[in-house]
Design a protein around this nucleic acid. Structure first.
Lengths: 146, 146
DNA sequence: ATCATTGCAAATGATTTGCATTCGC
DNA sequence: GCGAATGCAAATCATTTGCAATGAT
């Protein structure tokens, strides 16, 4: 859990102004593991914060991404999702309940070092999306089958 | 290189009607490794074929995907790309010239078996996008630096 | 003959943009 | 005070959809 002061320091270090809207958006992403879309973030903010516009949410997300504080996911849906973790990492997408989990870090390390060694590209980033059933949905399916 | 007859047989096997538009779209994807977008396919078809509408291109791509003849890529651009290879496989995206190459099949096999073993999901598909400089662009950069 | 496919035009929906107002520094 | 950030409304752009005409079986 990060204080607003710590977040403000991060913003200043990267040379962007500290505004309540930016703090509010970043706070959501820093505190959740749920990889929300811009619209979901907008609705969460409306619930707590008096006023923020959807276009400011988009602009803010783009700003935070351009200074490397967050990252953007392309899960294959119509809209993007955002991630408070700016480092490239793998994601597991449940094909039944549509939740998006992070891939274990060590596991991704193994994968990326393997790929760095064997491909002819000079790699700078990696997006790995795995689709399947999450443990919860597997359990539900088993119960249904009994 | 596949004949129109062979393509027609594939369509019938999957229970979809054989139309000139479908043959033309599938022919493009079966013959190229360039992973074109719907709009690029549309323009290629306009050049050779007298008449096909963009919405038919979209509908056809969706049909071919739903019967497992092609697959859809999410490279992270604003539009989708399509791939004549229906099996999940990895892609290398050049951050300089924006070409999209296929990842060596054996390499992907290594990665996916590693992931199947170590993740808690029951995996059904996998999208792997690697971003970096393709060999050509690396060479250009080196020349420029001299 | 029947039902799916086509193609146009209009609708949709996520994201972006122009611009006047407001705010951080 | 100055330049960047905000917020509304309008614009954009890929993709989808409704529906009448056409084509495949």
């Amino acid at each position: 859990m990060m204080t607003r002061e710590e977040m403000a320091r991060l913003f200043r270090e990267r040379g962007i102004k500290v505004t309540p809207q930016r703090l509010a958006v970043y706070e959501i992403l820093a505190q959740t593991k749920s990889h929300p879309s811009a619209d979901q973030i907008f609705r969460l903010l409306q619930a707590q914060n008096p006023a923020i516009s959807l276009s400011t949410v988009y602009k803010t997300l783009d700003t935070l991404r351009s200074v490397g504080l967050i990252s953007l996911l392309n899960v294959g849906e119509d809209s993007h999702r955002y991630d408070g973790n700016p480092d490239p990492h793998g994601h597991l997408v449940c094909t039944s309940c549509h939740r998006v989990d992070d891939l274990d870090e060590g596991l991704l390390g193994d994968v990326s070092s393997l790929l760095q060694r064997k491909s002819h590209y000079r790699l700078s980033a990696l997006n790995l999306y795995l689709y399947g059933l999450c443990p919860d949905c597997q359990a539900k399916l088993i119960r249904k089958a009994e």
